[in-house]
Simulated scan of single mutants.
Amino acid sequence: MSRFTVAAAQYPIDRLGSWADYVAKLERWVGEAAAGGAALAVFPEYGAMELAALDPATMGDLAGSLASVAALAPQVDALHAALAARHGIHLLAATMPVHLGGMHYVNRARLFAPNGRMGWQDKLVMTRFEREQWHVAAGGPLHLFQTALGPIGVTICYDSEFPLLARALVEAGAEILLVPSCTDSLQGYWRVRIGAQARALEGQMIAIQAPTVGKAAWSPAVDVNRGAAGVYGPPDGDFPTDGVIAAGVEGAPQWLFAEIDLAALGAVRQTGAVRGVAHWPEQPGAAPLPPVRPIDLR
């Protein structure tokens, strides 16, 4: 499948009253993505932190919110697996903290295929907030997901601002880069957006950014959320002159839909006006790249 529709969420953080409320919300959102024809739907970074509202005793505490949300990981994953299978769609679940023992938490995205398979990607470079206040640790390694839609990589929010991570995924075969994000300022949003667009340019790939939006004053972790979803490609060949395939309205809860064509991407890599992927090693000081572990979700 070279041409298909993708959906990127501009996802609001809601103060949920129960697990049933969360299930209903996810069912509605995934149902809308599928009804829009999406073969791939992307949720944002830390969207799962709205689940902290289910434990009023800890939801206002950073450490407590990590623990309460992480404890729900098996249920959250089972819900996404069921929705992916029900709708025949690939789902990148909103990232959530995963407890690895002791005080060690990582920020993890999980990609669910409609055939029941799942792979995960941890964030590798942590922001100051994660390091200094929340104490969420870096994880890894990089994974390349082989899917029925094509080879997919994930760089979570800040990770998209570091070109060697995406380059390692490109050299492993990635054609689509998923960029779930969570930023509390427009400056933060633009840093991630510019990073995603730069990765699409230099990697001659499709980058899909999905942010959290809105305010959640009850949460010390995701209280303010600014951003817009975007689908970006290389500004070459049959792609838009600015590389922006689609862009959402900042701050509005919505799905952003776009049709992407991996055959057009392949043509750009082979016969485009420039060949950034092929010419990367010619730049002085091109650094050794981190290893990438393949995961087969087909």
Rank of each mutant, 00 (worst) to 15 (best):
57 A>S: 10
48 A>H: 01
38 A>P: 05
124 L>E: 05
103 M>N: 14
97 P>R: 12
133 Q>C: 11
95 T>S: 14
135 H>G: 13
112 F>T: 03
69 V>K: 00
126 M>E: 09
128 R>L: 14
101 G>K: 01
69 V>D: 04
97 P>A: 04
73 A>Y: 03
74 P>N: 06
108 R>I: 03
111 L>N: 07
110 R>L: 10
153 G>A: 08
122 D>S: 09
110 R>H: 11
102 G>F: 00
157 C>R: 02
78 A>Q: 13
129 F>L: 11
51 L>D: 00
143 H>C: 07
101 G>C: 07
70 A>G: 15
54 L>V: 01
53 A>Y: 05
46 Y>F: 15
121 Q>A: 09
124 L>Y: 09
137 A>K: 14
25 K>C: 04
122 D>E: 01
108 R>K: 06
31 G>Q: 02
130 E>Y: 11
82 A>E: 14
45 E>T: 13
109 A>V: 02
57 A>M: 08
141 P>E: 15
118 M>Y: 12
108 R>C: 05
104 H>W: 06
38 A>R: 08
139 G>C: 06
145 F>L: 08
156 I>V: 15
98 V>G: 02
110 R>E: 14
149 L>T: 03
125 V>E: 13
68 S>E: 05
76 V>D: 03
49 M>Q: 07
82 A>V: 05
108 R>H: 06
80 H>I: 07
108 R>M: 12
130 E>Q: 15
105 Y>H: 12
104 H>A: 12
95 T>W: 04
135 H>Q: 15
35 A>T: 10
37 G>S: 14
163 P>N: 05
29 W>L: 09
146 Q>E: 14
50 E>H: 07
75 Q>D: 13
132 E>N: 13
94 A>L: 03
141 P>Q: 14
104 H>E: 02
79 L>V: 02
29 W>V: 11
161 E>I: 10
73 A>R: 02
116 G>Q: 10
32 E>K: 13
98 V>L: 11
21 D>C: 09
148 A>D: 13
30 V>L: 06
23 V>W: 03
63 A>V: 09
